[in-house]
Design a protein around this nucleic acid. Structure first.
Lengths: 144, 144
DNA sequence: TTCAATTCGGACAGACGCATCCGATATGAT
DNA sequence: ATCATATCGGATGCGTCTGTCCGAATTGAA
């Protein structure tokens, strides 16, 4: 469904979003450990998320990553997926045809239309904050 | 959604399934041309489909590939996807967690459950024969 | 029998996603 | 100032999926 990079990104954002207080910082090491991801690779992903303003970074001594509180309330799963994998999962043809459309449909077009619509809707309405709150409540796992 | 290999496989099977008469043979070259796929690579995929009995092959001069008529009526999209990509698309966790389940769910588990169920159902009930019939009628494209 | 057409099967090449390494840069503490 | 602790950014390596090459095997036709 998602690329491995995107899976790491989602887990990282969810973990950062569990911060109980505003502007609570998490270091790269803490994040990578919490989501059981390779340290160096996770660094790249966090940089990418910072560049697209999904998370914020603080450089230097005692630095780390956090999510601005005003961002958190408007942050959805779709934002992360778009930033990392793009929106191909919701738009591209099931057979990989570039000219596939409602007017010029591939044989699978109708079958996939509904699925893609459902995925798009799910990503759009799944709030990061809501999921992060669920983690602290129910001890959801971000590892294994 | 699917691997490129799987996309080629689906297109190839759909093309072969458009045969108007029983046991109508298509050569590798004809298939690759019809679905706009690399010749040599398509060969590998057709071998794989033949090994899993989704299609049948005839070796030697004037050989080629065909689908046994009694197979065609019971052949569904899920058969091809299972043979090439496996059933991970319908079963594996959205975050790539191996121990994710209803008892021990990841934060995305509930959201993905419905999507995966829908995909599985769609693949299971989408008949190759039915789609192939649609191709001859409406001039669906298997290229571009 | 010989030849041409075709699938089969193994080895190899290329591209891209995944992952690592290391120096540069930034920042707070001593 | 100097140092320790972080993130940043470029270069590089690895593995898998995608794709190619070529000879072997099979079959029908001349």
């Amino acid at each position: 469904m998602f690329s491995k990079t995107c899976e790491y990104a989602i887990k990282a954002v969810l973990y950062i979003a569990t911060a109980p207080e505003e502007n609570n910082l998490f270091s790269l090491n803490a994040i990578a450990k919490a989501i059981d991801s390779p340290n160096a690779y996770t660094s790249k992903i966090l940089q990418q998320l910072a560049k697209t303003n999904i998370i914020q970074s603080v450089k230097g001594h005692a630095g780390g990553y956090f999510i601005a509180k005003n961002n958190l309330s408007t942050l959805f799963l779709s934002d992360i997926v778009d930033a990392i994998d793009g929106d191909g999962i919701c738009t591209s043809c099931g057979l990989g045809l570039k000219q596939c459309s409602a007017k010029n449909p591939c044989p699978l077009h109708d079958q996939f239309m509904q699925i893609r619509t459902d995925i798009k809707l799910m990503l759009k309405k799944t709030s990061i904050k809501q999921m992060a709150d669920g983690i602290s409540e129910k001890d959801f796992s971000l590892k294994r």
